[in-house]
């Protein structure tokens, strides 16, 4: 009972670790059993083990299995969780060279320049802490009007505003306009969902942005602003919270 009483809050706070599946997956990867490593890693992330390292190692095992689009998806998700990890960016560069469509990622033009340096969680927690500190300073000010809280409030308030805005922007991106990776060998982007004219064709590993989702179709956009509808199940969304698609079965022999 006491153990249950401790575990439950930890699970509620999201502080529990997944533990074993990740270790097994890592052991399989070290042993060279990439298929098993991929399977275990997918099980781990789908079980809630959301970590940049876990997604990164999933990408490594998928890459070794020659599942390039899935590896790109795993590394893109890893980059959301650990944007400062140079290995992820380097491996993405490697994997992209093995795709067919040359799609240049547009430069980050957001005025919120810090978005590329902090993960979504880091920005969220920073916003929460700064807002909490700002509220505490406000309460202190009401309790002791003579207390010098002006400069501390400014020092906390500016980052609070910045991180709150960027967290909201990140959340909006993840929920409404996530990036995606084409997972099928080839997909045609059409003008009107399933029945429209084929506007362009994308191949496995192409990275796009999803602008709308209607039923089983998604309106995708390329960096050069070309848009088209594709079946949603041909895409893997770059949202670490979503279940990772099962890696393709390796042909026997």
């Amino acid at each position: 009972m006491p153990l249950f009483g401790l575990t439950t809050p930890l699970l509620c706070l999201g502080l529990a670790t997944a533990g074993e599946p990740v270790d097994d997956a890592l052991a399989a990867l070290v042993a060279g059993d990439h298929a098993e490593a991929s399977r275990l890693h997918v099980a781990a992330v789908n079980g809630g083990a959301l970590s940049g390292d876990v997604y990164y190692n999933l990408g490594v095992s998928l890459y070794r299995e020659d599942a390039i689009p899935e590896a790109i998806l795993a590394w893109r998700r890893a980059a959301v969780l650990a944007p400062r990890d140079g290995d992820i960016l380097m491996n993405l560069s490697h994997a992209r060279r093995r795709t067919q469509d040359r799609i240049e990622a547009p430069a980050l033009d957001s005025w919120m320049f810090w978005r590329s340096s902090f993960s979504f969680s880091e920005q969220g927690w920073a916003a929460a802490l700064c807002l909490s500190a700002l509220g505490a300073l406000g309460a202190l000010w009401r309790l002791r009007p003579e207390a010098p809280v002006g400069i501390p409030a400014l020092l906390v308030g500016v980052p609070a505003l910045a991180f709150t805005l960027s967290t909201a922007a990140e959340l909006s991106t993840l929920n409404d306009r996530p990036d995606a990776v084409v997972l099928t060998d080839e997909v045609s982007a059409r003008s009107e969902g399933a029945g429209g004219v084929v506007l362009f064709t994308l191949h496995a590993g192409a990275e796009v942005t999803v602008r709308e989702r209607v039923g089983a179709q998604a309106l995708i956009a390329l960096p050069d602003d070309r848009v088209g509808w594709v079946p949603l199940d041909t895409l893997g969304l770059v949202d670490p919270r979503l279940p990772f698609p099962s890696p393709p079965a390796k042909p026997a022999g």
Partner: peptide, 17 residues
Amino acid sequence: IAPLHPRAKADRALFRP
């Protein structure tokens, strides 16, 4: 590609407001 990350652990859940 860069080698695997040997200290991979499942971190806390993604931030949820």
